[in-house]
Design a protein around this nucleic acid. Structure first.
Length: 109
DNA sequence: AAGGTGACCGGCC
DNA sequence: TGGCCGGCCACCT
């Protein structure tokens, strides 16, 4: 497919199940560009235009809401996560490993 | 065309 | 876990 890098990131992000989260690196890895984790974050930045992209379910490897600053409200991202049953304390996801979801690979080729 | 930038990651202390 | 450093890669000006 000749989709842009962003489109691929969005595709993965949209696959994140309700009440689950994933990391930028995981998405990057799913795309085959594990080293381009930063690009995933960059793509998420543009995801503001995509309403179907649950960017609030994407955090860094530490489970910290690193991108909450980029949301409209400072606590919007946390609110969304808590609405899905994910505990968030001090911009950090509780039981990160339990709610962590690894993107499926090779299903969009 | 080249350089700067970034919602990161992994390793080390 | 947290802080610092280097690497990495696509996008923007």
């Amino acid at each position: 497919m000749e989709e842009n890098f962003f489109e691929r990131v969005y595709t993965i992000a949209r696959q994140i199940p309700y009440g689950k989260v994933t990391s930028y690196g995981a998405i990057a890895k799913a795309l085959g560009t594990a080293r381009s984790a930063r690009m995933v974050g960059w793509a998420m930045n543009a995801s503001h235009n995509m309403e179907d992209v649950p960017a609030h379910r994407v955090v860094n490897r530490k489970g910290i809401l690193s991108g909450k600053h980029h949301f409209q409200g400072t606590n919007l991202m946390q609110q969304l996560l808590e609405s899905e049953g994910i505990e968030v304390v001090d911009n950090q996801i509780v039981d990160f490993e339990k709610v962590f979801w690894e993107p499926e690979v090779g299903d969009l080729k």
